Simulated assay, not measured.
Amino acid sequence: MTQTFKTIRQRFLNTLSPTYGESEAESVFIIVLEDVFHYKRTDYLLGKPLALSAADEQQLEKILVRLRRGEPIQQIIGSTQFMGISLKVTKDVLIPRPETEELVDLILQDQQADRRPELRIIDIGTGTGCIPIALKKHLPEAHITALDISKEALEVAKYNALNNNTLIHFILADILEWDLVFTDEQYWDIMVSNPPYITHDEKWDMQAQVLEFEPHLALFVENKAPLLFYETIASFALQHLQPNGLLYVEINQKYGQEVKTLLQKKGFSNVSLFQDIHGADRMIKASLSSK
Rank of each mutant, 00 (worst) to 15 (best):
A173Y: 12
Q112K: 07
E26N: 10
E250N: 07
N270I: 01
K151V: 14
T80E: 08
W204E: 09
E26M: 07
E24C: 02
V156F: 11
D189G: 13
M283S: 02
D174W: 09
K203Y: 08
L263N: 15
L288F: 11
L288V: 00
I124F: 12
Y197S: 04
P140F: 10
I233Y: 01
E71F: 02
T183M: 12
V271Y: 15
P195R: 00
Q111P: 05
Q209A: 05
A234E: 07
T261C: 09
Q75P: 03
G279L: 01
P117R: 05
L147P: 15
V32K: 01
K291D: 11
S86W: 15
K265Y: 12
S290C: 05
S235E: 10
P196C: 01
D281Y: 07
S27E: 13
E185L: 06
Y187T: 07
R41V: 00
I198W: 06
N14A: 15
V36K: 12
D92Q: 10
D184M: 04
I284V: 07
I107C: 09
M83D: 13
V271G: 00
D205H: 14
E222F: 04
L60G: 08
S272I: 05
T90E: 00
Q74V: 00
I122V: 12
L46F: 01
P132D: 08
F5Y: 15
Y255F: 15
L238M: 09
D110W: 10
E118H: 12
G47R: 00
R41L: 01
I168C: 07
V210A: 03
F82C: 09
D201C: 03
I198Y: 06
S23F: 14
M83A: 13
L246K: 15
L106T: 11
E57Q: 08
C130R: 04
I122Y: 04
I95K: 00
Q253D: 14
D179R: 14
A146W: 10
Y248M: 03
E141V: 08
I107L: 09
P226I: 00
N270M: 04
Q264G: 10
L247A: 11
Q112E: 08
A234F: 07
A218Y: 02
Y20V: 06
K6M: 14
P215T: 00
I175P: 11
A113L: 03
Q186F: 03
Q112H: 05
P96A: 07
I131L: 09
K285G: 06
I149H: 09
T261A: 13
R66A: 02
Q74W: 04
Q81V: 13
G245M: 07
H169P: 08
K254I: 05
N14T: 11
I190L: 05
L176K: 15
T100V: 06
I124S: 06
S17F: 01
A280Q: 14
L33V: 00
W178E: 14
I8E: 12
Q111H: 05
H200A: 06
S272V: 05
R116W: 07
I175Y: 15
Q74P: 05
K291G: 07
I198M: 02
K137C: 03
E118L: 02
P96F: 01
R115F: 06
H240C: 03
Q209Y: 13
I76S: 01
L52F: 05
T19V: 09
E141M: 10
L167R: 01
P195K: 00
I85Y: 14
L33S: 02
L87D: 13
Q3W: 15
E155N: 15
N252V: 09
D189H: 04
S193G: 01
I30T: 08
F213R: 01
T15K: 10
